[in-house]
């Protein structure tokens, strides 16, 4: 491994705890948006929130080793583009969002578990 790669890996390791905390925040935001949709029906603010989270994860999750989350987030991002309160279909649009939330929960729980227990 060359020096620049080592330098880069060290930087990613430094950023990783912050990213895990961001992922926790994102899973909570997705849960809140999903709860709101379930309570009040589709609404644009909650859909914007989902789109925002998916877009962010699609851009960065893979860089920290969560390629599957990043790829699924990219699918959600594409699916949600152009989706609004009128066109939102609970099964088609929100099932993948629930899956993304669950993936985030599993990943962040695994990070919180001491390594020897994994």
């Amino acid at each position: 491994m060359d020096e620049s790669q080592q330098q880069l890996n060290a930087a990613i390791d430094r950023l990783r705890p912050r990213y895990v905390s961001t992922m926790t925040d994102f899973s909570e935001r997705l849960s809140a948006a999903l709860d709101e949709q379930a309570r009040t029906g589709p609404n644009d603010a909650a859909l914007d929130e989902i789109r925002f989270v998916a877009h962010r994860l699609a851009g960065t999750a893979e860089s920290f080793g969560w390629g599957e989350i990043g790829a699924h987030a990219a699918q959600v991002d594409t699916l949600m583009t152009g989706c609004d309160a009128e066109t939102c279909d609970s099964h088609r649009h929100l099932t993948p969002v629930r899956k993304l939330r669950d993936m985030l929960l599993r990943a962040t729980r695994a990070e919180a578990t001491p390594r020897r227990l994994r």
């Binding site: 330098q7 880069l8 930087a11 990613i12 950023l15 912050r18 990213y19 961001t22 962010r56 851009g59 960065t60 860089s63």
Partner: peptide
């Protein structure tokens, strides 16, 4: 985070 990754 994306900024930090690019900077790194």
């Amino acid at each position: 985070i994306a900024c930090e990754l690019l900077k790194a």
